[in-house]
Design a protein around this nucleic acid. Structure first.
Lengths: 334, 334
DNA sequence: TTTGCTATTGTTAACGTGTGCAAAGCGTGT
DNA sequence: ACACGCTTTGCACACGTTAACAATAGCAAA
């Protein structure tokens, strides 16, 4: 039915080895025969059987794109952007296989034969068992989005802490002193770093955030909304709130508007990520742009190099800078 | 290095054939030996080499999740929801490989050996060449989201036309007569069907939409925003606008607010899809819920059945109903 | 002529798994 | 004792490709 190199060999009156070499551009083969065979292959509509190649070359032609979870805590924008960017780099040299770590009970089915390389978008230390498993199996690995202190890991990430710091500085500059904070998913490293950076900025302005002004928003819309409602139930309302991502900022804005207050006149709102919708809200959200696209692109490229053996798997950490984006949702405290 | 069935065979003092059969639960093997071998395999930490399995069984263990494009015209929410739902069904029985049709120059690299089955989220007739290619190669295929009139295709989709019809009826009921329409990406079937359904509803109210009130929004935020600005530049502003998806509605709302008008008092806005953020905007968007989750789930399940040979690949079209969701962005025309 | 080198091609085995067919073991009915 | 059938196991090959090694031819140097 389907044509194999043996079929080509028979017609070309050479051995199948010669065909294999010709199609793989081996220098051992005479230029003329090479061209003759290639032409014949094209004419016969030959496509290599990758399953056979896989077996003998010990390659799967799969690269795994893993997320800590794809069911919750990972925003649609984030997921989509990463997939787009990774796909752009990988093209059709490999299959891009999407997975959530939390889909696995155990990692026995993850092995070198199934994945030529793995790109992990890691959110929390809970991923470590996965990471060490992958490293032990010697699968080329790049960890994005979270720092892992291991001499074998290549790390690429945005500087969350510095980004949150600039957000804090901004609010101080505008004269805010009653500042609230809606955190991301607990256990996620990004939550911790954004908290750290933000509080540090405030500390430099001799400000500490009181407990009633801190809430868990879980990185999603509902979380942002209900957290903000909780915060506004206080006797003294804050004049500004920092949400650890834009989705929660969206939820928070709804809560604020429902209570009849205005943004930014009564309450200023700062988000994080610069999700694609943020500029189109009214008011447009002041936020911190996180270069997921660059991080992903760099990571995917590095992974390709790792797989091809161009570079070694030794510890390296690359930071990409965030960028503060001043829009309409924040204003001077009066 | 890695343990194979031959290794197990040697230790268990049987042939590798017996091991293979035991691990695959063949009825030919004695119950006791079966258990003995399974226990041994577990103890030795055996994992099958799927590359070898692939070769002999002629299966790739990949299922392709194809989109018309993943770069534009496919909203992040849509992409993410489909992937989540498909992943939920597939689990780890197969690899979920994500691809955009427009990533391919030609389809020679798509074949039965590389994909055990394909789930296509089709947006336009431009996908037909892909579809026929896949059908000719006898790869199990399910087409979601768009109807393809071919006796070999299984189709699952939401009833876009009826959904848009309900949106039209709603605006009429509220007394609107000056109604605008921001369309989706041109060439996409969904754009055509939503237009058809909406205009039909209006026609039943003896209304036709004037050309100045129609714009191309391209299904994205920017498109919705600039289209709405264009429409509002007319001497007589509309009192209502139907956007073919929620992202564009978001953009349109921004344009309206910027011009100082109020929603829904001055202009009512209806969206489509019920994207996850729609309920959290202020005003919350009145929209038509499209059950992508159900469509995807049903499609993925059907594909599994196709692959396992439980069902045949004969034409079938399943519609899932949309649901009108009345929120705050529309109101009585006064 | 012999030897050695180079360029090109072929032979054969290997990768790890599944399967058709043969065969062995064992009981049962005649 | 024999034939028969059932259960359980093994042998040998297949899947399509790559690669180590052998082989051949041609040519130049000794």
């Amino acid at each position: 039915m389907t044509v194999t190199i043996k079929d080509i060999a028979k017609i070309a009156k050479v051995s199948h080895t010669t065909v294999s070499r010709a199609l793989n551009d081996s220098p051992l083969i005479n230029q003329e025969t090479k061209e003759r065979i290639k032409a014949l292959a094209k004419e016969l509509n030959y496509t290599p059987n990758y399953n056979a190649k896989s077996l003998v070359l010990d390659k799967s032609y799969n690269i795994g794109l893993f997320f800590s979870t794809i069911n919750e805590g990972t925003s649609a924008t984030f997921l989509a952007e990463v997939i787009r960017e990774a796909n752009r780099v990988i093209r059709d040299s490999y299959n891009l296989v999407i997975r959530g770590i939390d889909d696995y009970k155990d990692f026995s089915s993850i092995n070198k034969k199934k994945f030529d390389g793995i790109l992990l978008l890691s959110q929390s230390a809970a991923d470590n068992s996965f990471i060490y498993n992958v490293l032990d199996k010697e699968i080329p690995l790049i960890v994005l989005n979270r720092e892992v202190k291991d001499p074998r890991v290549i790390n690429i990430l945005a500087d969350d802490k510095k980004g949150a710091y600039t957000a804090g500085k901004h609010l101080l500059q505008q004269g805010h002193r009653k500042i609230a904070m809606i955190e991301g998913k607990q256990g996620f490293k990004s939550t911790e770093l954004r908290r750290l950076g933000f509080l540090q900025a405030l500390a430099e302005g001799n400000l500490i955030v009181s407990d009633q002004y801190i809430a868990d928003g879980n990185y999603d819309l509902e979380g942002g909304y209900s957290s903000m409602r909780g915060i506004m139930a206080n006797r003294h309302k804050p004049t500004a709130v920092f949400c650890f991502n834009d989705e929660m900022a969206l939820g928070a804005i709804k809560a604020i508007k429902e209570s009849g207050l205005k943004i930014p006149e009564d309450i200023s709102v700062v988000g994080f990520d610069d999700s694609h919708f943020s500029a189109f809200l009214s008011p447009a959200i002041t936020t911190v742009r996180r270069p997921i696209d660059k991080v992903t692109r760099e990571g995917a490229n590095k992974l390709m190099q790792l797989i091809q053996g161009d570079i070694q798997m030794k510890s390296e950490t690359i930071y990409f800078d965030t960028k503060f984006i001043y829009r309409e949702s924040t204003g001077q405290n009066i």
